[in-house]
Design a protein around this nucleic acid. Sequence first.
DNA 1: GAGTTTGAAACT
DNA 2: CAGTTTCAAACTC
Length: 788
Amino acid sequence: MDTPERNQIGSTSVSKFEDSPVFNYINNLSPIQPVKSIHTSQTFNSLSFASLPSVFTSPHASSYKESRFLRRHSISDLSKPDFSTEDGSKVETDGGATGNVAQLQDDSSPPDEKSDSLSNPSTELPSERPESTKEEPQASKSDSSRPDCDQKLPDSVLKSGEDLALSDSCVKNKSGNGSSEAEGNKQVINHTEEREGTGYDWESLMTEGADLLIFSSPNGSEAIRLVQKPLDLVTGFASSTLSQIMENDNADLSKMRIADPVESSGGQHEIEFLSSQAGEACELKDMDQGIDSLSFPNSSNSMSREITDDEVARYIADDCKPASNLYRGMRRRCLDFEAAVSRRKNLEDSSNGGSVSKRSEEKTASMDKQLVPYKSGGVATRCVLTGIGLHLNALATTSKDAKNLNHDKFSSERQLNLPNSSASCHSPSGGLDPLLTSAVTERDMDPSGNGAQNEEDGARASAYVLAEDFNQNSPKKKRRRLEPAGETESSCKRCNCKKSKCLKLYCECFAAGVYCIEPCSCQDCFNKPIHEDTVLATRKQIESRNPLAFAPKVIRNSDSLPEPGDESNKTPASARHKRGCNCKKSSCLKKYCECYQGGVGCSISCRCEGCKNAFGRKDGSSILGLEAELEEEETEANHKSMMDKGLQGPEIQNNEEQNPGSAIPSTPLQLSRQLVALPFSSRSKPLRSSFLNVGSSSGFYAGHKLEKPNILRAQPDLGINTKPVLEDEMPDILRGECSPGAGVKTGSPNSKRISPPQSDFGLSPLPRTGRKLILQSIPSFPSLTPQH
DNA sequence: GAGTTTGAAACT
DNA sequence: CAGTTTCAAACTC
């Protein structure tokens, strides 16, 4: 689990953890550790904590984490309601629990349990554990799966994130599929079985695990808590809990799977536990406990166990065994690409009740290949991708529909895909992601989804997933910027690059830190997961030139926070373009102008000529000043404009143009960005996504560390309010040197002014206090860039 | 949808 | 650092 410490500290924290006795202890407990090197998930390993600086190298991890968190939040939100009421959700939760367990196992060696259970269905859980450790063959299987887990605690965190992502899809699928609990359970089983054949079992487990995570963090914040929870707690619980978990996990896991129906109640428990507990071990325990409770909402735990043991053993035997083998390789990929795939699978499963066989086949294919098949098979999906953004992001605020969930997934996927997704992105954008990220957020925002909705969502999600897969696998598939400029844009970027190969900042997708997707009409695109290495390398190069190249272009101060509800989107006085524009002919009244596009006023840093930026003129460096100046002029014009607005609401620009000073100028960009922020703002979680999107477009690609910290920080954030604060603060922090007024102008390698990404900086729940926090966090952020 | 305009990004 | 070129988005028709 990521502890706040880690996040804050950054790379250094990681080393500390590793060195920390607790970490060692955990490693000892978990068989996984040794395995780490073993497998595979290159991206993961790279990400892994081993090389913090690897942020870039393994941006995925970070992005994943973030996105996952975001997703979690969103998911959790969704899941919660489901738990409370819907059966389908329950099923999901169950699955999620198992998945979580598995994931957790990665850290703590739970896989063994699964493998054990699988191998020895008849064996009792308690015995299984010891056996598992003893049983090498099984252990080996688990090990194979573990490689994913190879990471240490931090990895677990990552995993959890992945799980979450997976779980999202799963949840959706499950929720959709299982109208009744029994059905849901059956479905789960089926899924597992099917998966077994292909090795998806693990994935499903992972996805399930994700669900659990979600539960754990119904509110995003909770999830964060889990991650953040200090090692201290871990240390305290670690020994006891881990041991217990190890012992009980097998049974619990099995139970978890079986328990699906009851989960609703259990899910909550889990959440509670998670929140309270720290460290992975805690999570595992929680999971277990939650499962137990869930499994036997009505009956006592003992009951659940009895039932579960047998059934579970069966299930496990069926599901887990095959999965274990496949699982190995799969897992890491899942993190990056696989996660999406698994999600997709899950979605597909949910969407296609009987299509499992197909899935299994696809699954059998290598991850990439798998992705491809899915893609090919992918149904038309609605792209709500956020930027990635994660994001990215991304970017990130996207459609509000149930699809939002999908978006989140997408964003996460994107992020994952991206070697270094930044978005999230809070996904670009990014997030959030960002995009975010990115993407993502709205989903969270829209917890309203019912079980039925979930189903639909799942189907949609699957579709989205497919689309993403397409992107990854087939350049043809591109993101769809379904959403016009507004919300999705930030998160979901589309490009039309022809010569840049989408490896330059010319490419919006690349700039946002997200991979190109279906909607993109780019040519010779290298901004795809397939070319992750290239993307990362290129990104590094660009960052080497300008560390803030992927930082959000527009920094917004708290003042500027426009609430989602604010239609007027007045430009925040504090908001500024990091570098300022250089417009000469557009008078800063068109989107050519980045300032205008970003919905911010021009500042001293701008070198524009004939600035008429409705959000704020360069001369009036401060928007307020401009406004004051304009006020007189505007007053009248405003009246007119107001009148027009009242009638024509949508067209603010005109008014703005007419009344540059008008407070209401709303640019499409603003809308998009604000939208990104707004959605989030409204919802605490979304913020993150928004952050990703905005700030860490790079989130996808960008250093994971940064993102995490950001995430953690963001977690507390309640909404937009925090965000703005962050922005303001961010500049300060980043600026350090920079003059606060003009927006943050940081010296860029190119002598250009760069403002640190606002989004990146964690948001402190408390504006003022937050600042301090932000400052702390900020260091982490820089660390990321420097690493590059 | 093609062509033009624009300004950021990249290059020298 | 300044100037030029390249590039893709924004815009126009």
